[in-house]
Each structure stands twice: as structure tokens, then as C-alpha cells.
Amino acid sequence: MAGTQQKRKSLKSFKNRRKAIPVVIPKKQQAIGTTTTQPAPRFLIDYKNTKLLVKFISPQGKILSRRATGLTAKQQRVMSNAIKRARMGGLLPFVNYDIAGNK
């Protein structure tokens, strides 16, 4: 009886998790145009890539957690810094007032 309840709890946690988006952290010495073939298209984490950054922000404008995004700890740190840098540069809003309702 206890085993089936634990399975149900573990299955529920996967329902709320988003599908992981493959991202790459740019290295300083690595050239971007390498000739190695990659199995899947990967996205470079950069503050100017707003289409990618929007996927990691909630509708209210908050940065989503690692549990929700499926990123590693290192990727999450780089992603949060890129989002903060894009906010300071004016590329992303700090708060979405339309959804938050705080006008």
C-alpha cells in the first residue's frame, strides 16, 4: 500500500515539470563555429537572445526555478544572470503589469 502511494507522488511531480530546453554555456576560449556535429540544436545563453530568455520567465515576470525549467545548477546561474542583464538593458520587463494587476 505504501509503495503505490510513493509511486503516485513521484508521478505527480513530473506532470508539473517543463520539458528541458538544451542550452549551452559559452566558454571564453571556445570558438562558436566548431566543426563537430551536435545531436540536437542547442541554444546559446546570451542576454540578447530574448526569445530564449522568455521561456524561463513566468507570466508575472519572475525567473522560474530549476525544478520548473529542468536546467542544471550552472545553467540556471548563467540563465538568471542573463535575464537580469537583459532587464537592466531594457530588453525584458521587470514585471508584467497586465497579468499582475498592480497598476
Rank of each mutant, 00 (worst) to 15 (best):
Q30W: 09
T37W: 08
K28A: 11
L53E: 02
Q30G: 04
L52T: 04
K51S: 14
Q60C: 04
V24T: 15
K27A: 15
K62L: 14
A40H: 11
F43E: 12
P26N: 04
T34I: 00
I32R: 10
S58T: 08
P39M: 06
I57P: 02
T50G: 05
K55S: 12
P59Q: 00
P59K: 00
Q60R: 08
T35M: 11
G61D: 02
G33A: 10
F56M: 07
K55P: 00
D46M: 08
P26C: 06
P39K: 06
K62W: 01
K48F: 00
K55N: 10
F43D: 09
A40Y: 14
I57K: 00
K48G: 02
K51T: 10
P39I: 08
Q29T: 10
N49H: 12
T37S: 12
Q38K: 10
K28W: 11
T36R: 08
L53Q: 05
P26V: 07
K27M: 12
T36F: 09
A40K: 12
F43V: 06
N49I: 05
T37K: 10
K51I: 05
R42E: 15
Q30T: 12
I25M: 09
P41N: 04
T36S: 11
T36H: 03
T50L: 07
Y47T: 00
Q30N: 09
F56A: 06
A40G: 03
S58Y: 01
T34M: 00
Q38A: 13
I25D: 08
V24L: 14
F43N: 01
V24H: 11
T34Q: 07
Q29C: 03
Q30Y: 07
N49W: 01
R42Q: 13
P59Y: 01
K51D: 15
I25N: 05
F43A: 11
A40S: 11
K27Y: 12
Q38V: 14
D46C: 14
A31M: 10
